[in-house]
Nucleic acid binder design. Structure first.
Length: 1112
RNA sequence: AGUCUCGUAGCUCAGUUGGUUAGAGCACUACACUGAUAAUGUAGGGGUCGGCGGUUCAAAUCCGCCCGAGACUACCA
């Protein structure tokens, strides 16, 4: 019994997913696809580790599809592509999640719950959704090795990271600094600049801003002497959007070259007479012009318009050194403060041109205060350590008596009632009452927020460890230029600019669940030790024990996390105790270390590491530019003097169909599992890839997946169904020798030519990391070339006639197209392509590979590409289009044969091209002959058009007139130009000669005929229908009706029938074409009867009669 | 606030180093086709190519300004 191609009635992609997954499982196909290439050149791919403590979203399907595509493609191309999976397990998201589930805050850790318990919980929580992730990975067809993933919390991983840190330490790339940094009180940790640069961190917020008055103190300063002696108090006014920093004010900064003015006026809240100093340029912002016209003495309390007078001007330089009274004297500085200092960043864009300086809460503030010798306003805690006036929870310290224990930002409160007044407001009120507020107003500005807690950050002085990335900036920039970025602008622009403005990488995190800093310090900080391996830790501990430190030796399997490492005490060269620096390292360092740590390099697998570094290819979302893309790059450049990856795709966001960000809160997030199970992985993947280039944002619309399913997969499936239906009937199993391409008919050679062109273009776009172009090319080929043209024109070859060479050629050609398309599309649509492969190759056994993913990428055969053939097929398609259009215009259906069409040809080449495809045209549009009209035998009306490209540069400004002249050529003018090859024009009394190449001449009309044009092509249709043609038309119409009847009655396509037809006006037509009809409908007998005893009635060209069909 | 990218039909997208009727698919309307049929064909409606100005014989394409969107940058007081 002959094996048959499976004939599936309807396309069910999710079902195919299921069966293919089962097949892969049974045959261990993913493993095989690597084993298969074990001698191949490695193509190195790095998996950016996801964090399994959150649910995957549809955007993960996008990102992972892009990763998967190139790994699969390179495998087909013969590369060995190992893909080690990984899990990112440390960091704030995990910790915050655990705090939430345990119902604790950061302060409780180490108190209500031990660090040990806490970290144990983190370890469990972090893999909470691992199963869900694994499920998605499998269902979407993402091939990655999940059996041996790297996990960042494992000791081996940590040890490798320690080793990297030690190398940085030895190269003097690690240092500790006390700096003002972004700090999230809610999360309890400082934030690195790339965390601060996560999307959405900067948000517009409305804050209470205060312009405060700082009263001048009489001193020996030449200017202040005079100012302070006035009977009216004189103030500097300075603006701030963070009034809570005013108790920490230590100085005021002015611009040396800015002009300031002394103005006499009244305080708008207390109505007291005052004199204020501010930048001249900003007077307009604080004073109404009308006020200058009013006498000061005319002012009455509460007047809308407050009068003011300019008294004197100064330059900023003159003001430097003037002292003022402390605004909110809660805490006294340790040395003299409260004076005017220069600030290079002071401008007259905002505020008053005088900047409030709080050295503990601003980076610039700290710097200029330092330079001017201004101390910060700090308090001492019980240990004598100096603290700012706001503690790490974001609350005022006790010394700020009025506001002690209050959060400085309203957002930090759990809940606020309607009477709640923020610190900013309270301070504003206090200053108003004390005649120290010149202006209070709401001010909208963008302010950074913590990416995890959504609460505003503070700029806060912190001790931190830094990586001196700025030391290798040039090299980072240099090597970045060798990376192939898709899209290029992300590499040069976003990433390149970032590198240009690099700051040192803040490595410290004051948290618990993460890789501990392996740095030990003596109490006086005179000696530092960085530990680079477990072995080293062991021997250092031994040393410590020998010198009398009471602790256990490091046992095998010692957990390198906190709190265990915290308890380890080492000894310095001088015998002093050394304690570990309490911070963890930034989790981004974890993931940036994966090229090394995933192999436990350098402790193991040195050879494997070397073969897998750097990566040939990585891909992640564009939001990783400052995250993983940067940390990979920075570590490899600093320690290995190399890029970490050679090619990188930064994909865009997945938005909802209206272009809004997806979020659970808005309810517009798409569930990836639902999408996959409803539409299948392939339709989802194909839609995502073909709709827009991956680096553009994708507006995700389910309708788009449906369309992909219907149009692309549906059409391809129909083509396969068509093939299997007839191949089964003819028992075609491709066991004949492959027919030489030269021996195949024109149409076969054409589609093979197109197929090879397609192979080349898919290969090019994939090599260029542009999957969208490739997918679109495949789609176009399948729908337009293969289905709508090749199969449509060739249908009869499959269902008619003997099993001849022509038929075999047709089967072989269609088979080759299907199998090749399946291979080309397999990296994007791994399931459906496998389905096709199994069904096709399962019968023919042409290829040995058990799976399409174990085959080689189709070979481009240049010899099979025939551009001239592709051109003339285009010509055939155009002519058919024109004829169908003409038929439509005349309302003559295609089933009615017509005698001929006329095609004017101006050169013999075109005629030859058309002649070669004449049969296709004739059968496609049902005409008997094509007649060519040349200039000799016909009257062709020609059309002439200027060739702008050729003429433009020569004609210049006369172009318009020349074009006009050419367009108005008569037929005689055109003939003359054709005869002589040149023609003289007279434009503005100047002779201009044009050549034949300066124009395009085409046929336009055949007088007396019905014509249609497309480009330079013209076709006329002979619409006369002779009796003979009419009869044939009747016959064809009847055939169609009988075919419908057969189908209705559920006959098999191969069933023979007995046909009885009722006598009617069409009797003559039927008899004339009796043989034709019988053959078409597979009738073994055809009889015309007076009456037919059935109710099946057909209508053929307005004539009704009964037809009886029965199986023979 | 600055920098970058983008803005083409109702929707999703093409658009060739600037060249004269700006395209495709979807959706819509009408008609056809029907042994591949959730497909297909023909015809139709639908565009000031974000706006204004400039360069040019010629601009969707190059330049400037403005408007809108997105991303990035920022201690901006």
């Amino acid at each position: 019994m002959q094996k048959k191609y499976s004939e599936v009635k309807t396309l069910n992609l999710p079902e195919i997913d299921q069966s293919v997954l089962q097949l892969w499982e049974e045959q261990n196909t993913f493993h095989e696809s690597i084993e298969n290439r074990k001698d191949g050149k490695p193509f190195v791919f790095y998996e950016g580790p996801p964090s399994a403590n959150g649910m995957p979203g549809i955007h993960h399907v996008m990102a992972r599809t892009i990763k998967d595509i190139f790994c699969r493609y390179k495998t087909l191309k013969g590369f060995k592509v190992e893909r080690k999976g990984g899990w990112d397990t440390h960091g704030l998201p995990v910790e915050l999640g655990v705090e939430k589930t345990l119902g604790i805050t950061k302060e409780d850790i180490g108190k209500k719950i031990s660090i040990e318990e806490y970290n144990d919980t983190c370890r469990k929580e972090v893999m909470k959704y691992k199963d869900v992730w694994d499920d998605l990975t499998q269902k979407m067809g993402y091939w990655v090795d999940l059996d041996n993933p790297y996990i960042t919390f494992e000791n081996n991983y940590i040890e490798s990271v320690w080793n990297l840190l030690k190398k940085l330490f030895e190269k003097d790339f690690l240092y500790k600094g006390y700096t003002i940094q972004p700090y999230s009180p809610a999360a309890g940790t400082g934030l690195s600049s790339h965390e601060l640069n996560q999307p959405g961190t900067y948000r517009d917020v409305k804050d209470t801003s205060v312009t405060a008055q700082f009263k001048i103190k009489p001193t020996d300063h030449p200017i202040s002497k005079g100012l302070a002696s006035s009977s009216v108090d004189t103030f500097f006014i300075a603006w701030t959007t963070t009034p809570w920093t005013l108790p920490s004010n230590a100085a005021l900064a002015v611009g040396n070259n800015i002009e300031y003015v002394l103005i006499e006026t009244f305080n708008p809240y207390t109505f007291e007479a005052i004199r204020v100093i501010l930048a001249s340029d900003l007077v307009g912002k604080y004073f109404k012009p009308e006020g200058e016209e009013i006498e000061l003495t005319d002012y009455k309390e509460g007047d809308k318009i407050i009068p003011w007078k300019r008294l004197e001007t100064f330059s900023g330089k003159d003001l430097v050194g003037i002292e003022y009274e402390q605004l909110l004297p809660y805490v006294q500085p340790e040395k003299t403060a409260f004076r005017i200092i220069p600030g290079d960043f002071v401008s007259t864009e905002d505020g008053t041109g005088i900047v409030h300086i709080a050295p503990t809460f601003g980076a610039d503030d700290q710097r200029v205060a330092n330079e001017a010798g201004i101390p910060p306003i700090v308090v001492e805690d019980s240990t004598g350590a100096k603290l700012p006036l706001v503690n790490k929870q974001g609350k005022f310290v006790d010394e700020v008596t009025d506001f002690a224990g209050q959060y400085v930002k309203a957002e930090y409160e759990e809940a606020v009632d309607k009477d709640y007044k923020s610190i900013d407001v309270l301070i504003a009120i206090k200053l108003k009452e004390e005649n120290r507020a010149f202006k209070v107003e709401k001010y909208e500005h963008s302010y950074p927020h913590c990416w995890r807690t959504d609460k505003p950050i503070l700029y806060y002085p912190l001790d931190s460890w830094f990586v001196k990335t700025t030391a290798v900036k040039d090299k980072l920039v240099e090597l970045n230029k060798t990376i192939n970025w898709k899209p290029e602008s992300t590499g040069t622009g976003r990433f390149g600019n970032w590198l240009e403005n690099l700051v040192d990488w803040n490595l410290s995190r004051s948290r618990y669940w993460g890789i501990p800093l392996p740095i030990w310090v003596t109490e006086d900080r005179s000696e530092l030790k960085c530990i680079g391996s477990v072995e080293e830790l062991k021997s250092e501990v031994e040393k410590a024990i020998q010198s009398g430190v009471d602790q256990k030796p490091i046992a095998d399997g010692f957990d390198l996390h906190r709190p265990y490492v915290d308890d380890v005490i080492l000894v310095s060269s001088k015998g002093e105790k050394m304690y570990r620096e309490p911070d963890l390292i930034d989790v981004w360092f974890d993931s940036g270390s994966m090229p090394y740590a995933q192999w436990h390099y350098p402790f193991e697998n040195e050879e494997i590491f070397k073969n897998n570094f750097p990566a040939d290819y990585i891909a992640e979302g564009v939001d990783q530019t400052r995250g993983w893309f940067f940390t990979l790059h920075a570590i490899s450049v600093m320690l290995f003097d190399s890029v970490a990856y050679k090619n990188v795709i930064a994909n865009g966001l997945v938005l909802d169909k209206n272009g809004n960000k997806m979020s659970k809160r808005l309810g517009n997030a798409v569930d990836p599992f639902e999408t996959l199970s409803k539409y299948g992985a392939d339709a989802t993947r194909w839609y995502m890839i073909s709709n827009a280039p991956p680096w553009d944002n994708l507006k995700f619309d389910i309708e788009g997946i449906k369309e992909t399913q219907r149009k692309f997969f549906g059409t391809l499936f129909n083509t396969y169904s068509f093939f299997s239906l007839y191949a089964n009937i003819d028992e075609f199993t491709f066991n004949e020798a492959s027919i030489d391409i030269e021996k195949r008919p024109e149409i076969d050679r054409w589609v093979i030519s197109q197929l090879n062109t397609l192979i080349q273009s898919v290969q090019d776009s994939m090599d260029d990391y542009d999957p969208t172009r490739g997918a679109r090319a495949i789609q176009h080929f399948v729908i337009e070339h293969l289905s709508n043209w090749y199969v449509r024109l060739c249908r009869r070859r499959y269902w008619k006639g003997e099993y001849s060479d022509d038929k075999i050629s047709a089967y072989q050609t269609l088979y080759e197209c299907l199998i090749t398309v399946a291979q080309l599309m397999s990296s994007v649509a791994p399931f459906f392509s496998e389905f096709l492969y199994q069904n096709l190759n399962g019968i023919t056994q042409k290829l040995d590979a058990k799976s399409i993913h174990l085959t080689d990428f189709p070979e481009y055969k240049e010899g099979h590409v025939d551009k001239s053939l592709e051109e003339r097929m285009q010509l055939a398609q155009d002519i058919c289009y024109l004829v169908l259009s003409l038929r439509k215009k005349e309302n003559i259906k295609v089933r009615q044969p017509l005698q001929k069409i006329l095609v004017p040809v101006l050169d013999s080449q075109t005629q030859k091209q058309i002649e070669a495809v004449a049969n296709l045209i004739k059968s496609e549009v049902n005409i008997k002959e094509i007649e060519f009209l040349t200039e000799d035998n016909g009257i062709i009306k020609k059309r002439i058009k200027p060739n702008f490209k050729a003429l433009g540069s020569r004609m210049g400004s006369k172009m318009k007139q020349v074009a006009q002249a050419i367009i108005s050529f008569t037929q005689d003018d055109i003939a003359q130009l054709e005869k002589d090859g040149t023609y003289k024009l007279n434009i503005e009394e100047e002779d201009i000669e044009i050549q034949i190449g300066d124009v395009e001449i085409s046929s336009e009309d055949i007088p007396g005929w019905l014509v249609a044009n497309l480009g330079s092509l013209t076709v006329a249709l002979d619409i006369n229908i002779s009796d003979q043609l009419k009869q044939e038309g009747d016959a064809r119409e009847l055939v169609n009706k009988i075919q419908n009847l057969r189908k209705e009655k559920g006959f098999d396509v191969t069933d023979r029938i007995l046909l009885d037809i009722e006598k009617s006006d069409l009797q003559q037509s039927i008899l004339s074409f009796k043989d034709y009809i019988s053959k078409e409908v597979l009738a073994t007998s055809l009889n015309i009867e007076e009456t037919v005893d059935v109710s099946d009635e057909v209508e053929v060209n307005d004539v009704k009669f009964k037809v009886k069909i029965q199986k023979a």
